[in-house]
Design a protein around this nucleic acid. Structure first.
Lengths: 179, 179
DNA sequence: TTTTTTAGTTTTGTTTTACTAAACTCTGAG
DNA sequence: CTCAGAGTTTAGTAAAACAAAACTAAAAAA
């Protein structure tokens, strides 16, 4: 929590005095002082004004930063294959649920396809490494060939399929990770 | 913005009535109604209570505000090449600044390298499509070969280089987009 | 049909508090 | 010492958050 402290830090980083900040968002300097010392709590509307004057927004403000983590994946970490759907999914990063994005490698055999993915907030990006696949997005169906990419917000059900006899590989990155 | 609508949607997703939600966060059902219809705006403290009862938090609540967008990139949208660094960067998605992730294709010529990227919050994922590159991360230097991937939180300065004479290609996804 | 229940809305009123204006404190500089 | 610039504190008000109860509307039950 600690809204006040955070605002103070931000103000400092911008080399502003309480009064200067107060002017920018049409508040009194005394009030800014109270906010920073947590003697009061601004309304949401005024918080937006303050953050605006500090070049940020509610989203960034409340998003706590992630702990540092570096992963170098030389080999596949975990694999799950599905005979019936003729596919194989390689999770590239361990415990990606904790991260903002989750990259996977999808191998589709002849006539293979992935499981139906239900709509969720977030975005999906794919790059076809090998072969040719069909992306089914809502009622749309689009062909994506090797070296091509696709991108969409995951607000419709979707899955991919391989209509041909040759295997296909897709590098897939989704955010936030579906759980 | 539209705090009320969003709360209503969340409540619906949890199959709660206004009264049930009101009970959980010790508010009156009438007030919940006013909030959802934007006739009033909750204080930050009570907003936290409400979100808590809905199994979320300020951070997540204010983050997911992306407009639906679907992009299929069959050809490169914009390219920027740098003779001196012997590289070429292809932006795959137009206006990716508005999105949660920004995928690019990086081609490195012989002895090429990318510009120095300064630390920022967010995460970076890369997959080497062709050739062999070195990832410089802070003071670390790691070799990544074709078919291998790397991943890290972008809290240290970083860039990639191609030490060999053969060209190299890397598919790069970063989040949030650096601007 | 009438009655009852269930979900949501609207009104009215109280109480809390966000916010202002002005006085106050504490520096450091000239 | 005094002046100026930074922050703090106080006192008061205007605004609003929120509660409680009355009111709609619709569906379920009888």
């Amino acid at each position: 929590m600690k809204i006040g402290e955070k605002i103070r830090r931000l103000r400092m980083q911008h080399n502003l005095t309480q009064e200067e900040l107060a002017d920018r968002c049409e508040l009194s300097k005394g009030f800014i002082s109270q906010v920073e010392r947590e003697l009061t709590s601004p309304s949401i509307a005024t918080l937006v004004d303050i953050l605006d004057a500090l070049g940020t927004n509610l989203s960034d403000f409340f998003t706590n930063e992630l702990p540092e983590k570096v992963v170098f994946s030389k080999s596949d970490v975990s694999v799950k294959s599905n005979e019936e759907l003729r596919n194989e999914i390689h999770w590239i990063i361990p415990n990606a649920q904790k991260n903002a994005m989750e990259p996977i490698l999808v191998h589709l055999g002849a006539q293979g396809q992935t499981a139906f993915d239900h709509p969720h907030d977030g975005e999906e990006f794919g790059y076809v490494l090998k072969g040719q696949i069909y992306l089914h997005f809502g009622s749309k169906k689009v062909r994506v060939r090797s070296g091509e990419a696709f991108y969409f917000t995951a607000q419709a059900s979707h899955y991919i399929s391989n209509a041909s006899e040759k295997p296909a590989s897709v590098l897939w990155v989704s955010t936030p990770p579906s759980f």
